[in-house]
Design a protein around this nucleic acid. Structure first.
Lengths: 192, 192
DNA sequence: GCACCGATGTATCGTCTCGATACATCGGAG
DNA sequence: CTCCGATGTATCGAGACGATACATCGGTGC
């Protein structure tokens, strides 16, 4: 998921880690943000895999230049996507399997880069996501029906709220799907 | 958070790990479930800390009883809360600081055990949670306003949906707070 | 001029969580 | 009488997170 997001952002333009993190937070929908403890190891991995490269021009300062033996000077590092990375990104972008929408986090990132995604792929992902969330909704409904008897008011409220949230998500996805279909020339089937 | 939930469940009755996990999933609101990879280490930790104890009566079967050297026989393990554990639980239950509601997961667990929580503590936690979510909402609003110009339709939709969800959560919390206040005899202030 | 501060910036560490997996027993359906 | 799915305990490696350290830059106030 992180890999996808990073490739997507670097596909637009090279960036520092710091900037990358900020953009990442936005892409993730604004609430969920990525920590450096995840970001830098991910960058290191991707660099090792040849998906990105680092231009490291500025040693950041012209200090004594010889052995301030503390920990060593750190320069700004600009990360750039490689040809291999672009290939990998387009490969990921065209995936439509359950791995693309079963996890909400990855789905969010997929959505954020729908601009790079073909129309039919978009549709398939949205529908897959809807199926997943609908299944969740069924689970919640059962759970709620089962626990309605041995009533703990607060747990019940929590589940009710959760169910409504999931319900709203299904409706939201349905709207997106309808829009998508309409734009593809296909009239939305009256599946409401 | 796990610690709180486990103590809460074992406070009601002793349980196996398996049963514990099922109940845990329900308590967490139905969608989020705990994996064994989290549960068993947590139990081990809590056992080491003296919060719970294990009765291990049945070796599960009367096999040859001597050295099936594969990995060793495993018996059912019943976890029971100790006096120390109960003390810890009541200590946790009466906490009203930000740590009780800043994290949504922990807040959900707190809510599930509101039955063990004093009325004024309940109110303070609900109000704290609302403040937290309201702050999140502000952040989202700003982010949405900022990104509205450089429009990517899908990211925008994602943020819009996220904002509405947070908005709904605030309203939900407000209802809970009103109910709580009404039951405490205090008429809800007309803060709608 | 200069002391301080918050934003920018890179990076690691220990702790925890998760998904996958292995192992093992039990009740019942076919 | 065998196979299957539920019950049940447990670990492993990958990776995510919060906290923290280190370091520079552009101001703002004095």
């Amino acid at each position: 998921m992180l890999e996808f997001a990073i490739l997507g952002l670097l596909h637009q333009s090279p960036m520092h880690g710091y900037e990358l993190r900020k953009q990442l937070s936005q892409v993730l929908g604004g609430l969920r943000s990525i920590s450096y403890g995840s970001l830098y190891p991910a960058l290191k991995r991707m660099r090792a895999a040849g998906l990105i490269s680092t231009d490291e021009p500025e040693p950041h300062a012209l200090l004594p230049a010889d052995a301030p033996p503390l920990t060593g000077r750190r320069g700004k590092v600009v990360y750039t996507i490689t040809a291999e990375g672009k290939e990998r990104f387009h490969e990921l972008v065209s995936q439509t399997g359950p791995e693309a929408y079963d996890d909400g986090g990855l789905f969010g990132v997929r959505l954020a880069f729908f601009g790079h995604t073909a129309s039919d792929v978009r549709l398939r992902i949205l529908e897959g996501r809807r199926r997943t969330v609908e299944r969740q909704r069924e689970g919640l409904r059962c759970s709620l029906a089962r626990t309605r008897e041995r009533l703990d008011r607060y747990t019940l409220e929590l589940q009710r709220h959760g169910l409504e949230s999931v319900d709203r998500e299904v409706r939201w996805l349905s709207e997106l799907i309808d829009t998508e279909r309409r734009e593809a020339g296909e009239p939305p089937p009256t599946t409401t």
